[in-house]
Design a binder for these strands. Structure first.
Lengths: 155, 155
DNA sequence: ATCGGTGCAAACCATTTGCACGTTA
DNA sequence: TAACGTGCAAATGGTTTGCACCGAT
C-alpha cells in the first residue's frame, strides 16, 4: 500500500507537470481526498475543508474537482445518482466499485476484466473504445444485517 | 425479432398489471420509443410527440419516463452525461451499450457477461448485488472515418 | 508582471413540484 | 366517483459563470 505522503507528492508533481498551479486550496482538497477512507461527496469535501479554512468556497471545490479529474488524479463514483456522486483518489490501478443503495458507501472491486467479452464485438463493429464505466449497486453486509432493506425508488 | 406491435401490447398489459392507467399520452410516449431505431433524448421524445399532439407537455414526458422506467419498460442510456441521456425500449434481453462520443449514437452490445468475474468478490464481501451499469464510450466507425476525432473534455 | 485561481453573487437550466382540472377505471 | 394523470406555471437546487481581486510562477 502506497503511503498517503507519496500519493500527495506524486499528485503535486503531476499538477505541476500539467501546468496547473499549486494553490493552498487545491492542495487542501487533494489532501482531504487522499486522507479519506471513503469516497466523498462535494459537500463532504467542502465541509471537511471549511473546518480548517472557512473561507474556501464551494465553487472552488467544484472547479478543482473538475481540474483534478482532468488531471487523472481523482475519479468519480456512483454515477447512477447525481445527488450522491462521490470522489476518490485515483490510484494507478484501474478498478470499479460496488455501491450500497442503503448507506451509499462504495467498495472497490479488485480488477477490471469486464472488457474481454466485449473486445471482439468492438473490433467487429469497428468501434474504437476510449473509456468505460462499470458499477454494481446492491446492499453491503452491514446494511443487510442491520436494516430491513428499504424500498428503492426506481433504479 | 419481436415486431413492434407485440412490444406495445406487452407494454400496455404490463402497465395495467402494475396498476398504472392507460392514458393517450403514456401510450404515445411508449409508441414513440418503441418505433424509434435509436435511443431518444427527453427533448427528442417531446418533439416527436408534439407533431401529432401539440398539447403534450414536457412534464408529462418526464413523469412518464420515470413511470415507465419503474415499470421496467424503458431503460436509460448514456449515464455519463446528463445532457445527452437517452431512453430506449427495454426488451427482456439484458444488455449494455457502446456510446459514440462524437455523434452520441448508442450501439447495443450482445450480452452481459461482465458479472462473472465479480460474482466471487461479491460473495466474499457478502455484498448483495441488485443491479449494475456498464457502458463503453468511444468512437463509432462512421465518426472515425468522417471527422477528426474531437478533443474531449475530461472523461 | 503575467495570467491562472479564488470568492462572491448572480445566472442557468434541466428537472421537479403545487395546484386545479380532466380522465381512467 | 375516487384516484390518478395532465397542463400550466412557479419553484428548486446543484452546478456554472462573470467579474474583480489575489497570488503563484
Amino acid at each position: 500500500m502506497v503511503p498517503n505522503q507519496s500519493k500527495l507528492a506524486f499528485s503535486l508533481q503531476k499538477i505541476k507537470d500539467l501546468g496547473y498551479r499549486l494553490t493552498p486550496q487545491r492542495i487542501e482538497i487533494l489532501e482531504t481526498i487522499i486522507e479519506s477512507d471513503n469516497a466523498l461527496t462535494v459537500q463532504e469535501i467542502h465541509a471537511a475543508i471549511k473546518i480548517k479554512h472557512p473561507h474556501v468556497s464551494l465553487d472552488t471545490i467544484y472547479r478543482n474537482l473538475s481540474t483534478l479529474t482532468e488531471a487523472g488524479l481523482v475519479g468519480q463514483i456512483n454515477l447512477q445518482s447525481r445527488e450522491s456522486a462521490k470522489f476518490e483518489f485515483q490510484g494507478k490501478h484501474h478498478h470499479h466499485h460496488a455501491v450500497c443503495l442503503s448507506c451509499k458507501k462504495s467498495f472497490c472491486l479488485d480488477d477490471c476484466s469486464v472488457s474481454e467479452a466485449f473486445e471482439k464485438q468492438m473490433k467487429e463493429a469497428n468501434f474504437r473504445p476510449v473509456t468505460h464505466i462499470f458499477e454494481v449497486y446492491g446492499y453491503c453486509s452491514e446494511c443487510q444485517e442491520s436494516d430491513e432493506i428499504p424500498i428503492q425508488a426506481g433504479l
